[in-house]
């Protein structure tokens, strides 16, 4: 069996004065295909190691972390694709709770600020609010976001202004509801983002597109929001 070296960020605020990197060596078996499989094995070896996980198939977005310098989901990352020693750190820019676990409060605060739900004050029809297939198609590439925070925490604009800049995940969600034909508050949504910080801190660096484990494109969605603002203004 092949052995693999890992260097993992460790920090327990209750006992450690400052964070440190701890080295591990693990035997990789035939069933250890994804990084999460190896992390689970490591957890059995050292139960003080902490990380989040849930569905283990790229749907829940719990195990976002910085893998060899790039944000990604442990459950979707092939162990074979990683160069050694594999450096694992928490998502950058968010407060550390412990080891690889970050405090996502700020991230979700921004997500909630864009009202991530359809607002429609017209009395509901008897069955459901229908959309044409073309209108529904506009939501493809938007609704699939699992809020793992890989994109927002790789965005320098979000690092500098996490309290004011909505971030790529929030803006992708914002466009998802702006694009939804069943939503009735498009103008209010644009007003909410017409601000030098909330939307226009995006300088099209495109780190978000580079890291998204679901292969979504927040930069394109942000561009579409800007297009709509121009359309409204001129």
């Amino acid at each position: 069996m092949k052995k693999m070296r890992f260097s993992i960020y460790r920090y327990n605020p209750e006992t450690d004065a400052k964070p440190y990197m701890q080295d591990y060596e693990v035997e990789i078996g035939p069933k250890d295909i994804k990084l999460l499989d190896v992390l689970t094995k490591l957890k059995a070896m050292d139960d003080t190691l902490s990380f989040r996980r849930s569905c283990r198939e790229g749907i829940c977005g719990s195990d976002g972390m910085n893998i060899n310098g790039k944000n990604g989901l442990a459950c979707l990352t092939d162990v074979a694709s990683l160069s050694e020693p594999v450096a694992l750190r928490p998502l950058p820019g968010l407060p550390i709770v412990r080891d690889l676990i970050v405090d996502m409060t700020q991230f979700f605060k921004q997500y909630h600020s864009i009202k991530p739900y359809v607002v429609n004050n017209t009395p509901a029809p008897e069955r459901e609010r229908l959309q044409s297939p073309e209108d529904r198609k506009e939501l493809d590439g938007l609704y699939e976001c699992i809020l793992c925070a890989c994109c927002s925490t790789s965005c320098p604009s979000f690092w500098w202004n996490p309290d004011k800049f909505v971030g790529p995940a929030g803006l992708l969600a914002a466009y998802r509801f702006i694009a939804d034909t069943r939503d009735e508050i498009t103008s209010e949504r644009l007003d909410n983002l017409e601000d030098p910080y909330r939307l226009f801190r995006c300088h099209t660096i495109m780190n978000c597109v580079d890291v998204c484990p679901k292969h979504l494109n927040p930069t394109r969605a942000i561009g579409k929001i800007k297009d709509l603002m121009v359309k409204r203004a001129v």
Binding site: D163, D191, E194, D195, P196, F200, A233
Partner: peptide, 15 residues
């Protein structure tokens, strides 16, 4: 309080 909403984002971006 964290305050945003200065409403000149689009203008400066266009400029």
């Amino acid at each position: 309080r964290i305050v945003v909403g200065a409403h000149y984002g689009l203008r400066d971006w266009l400029v």
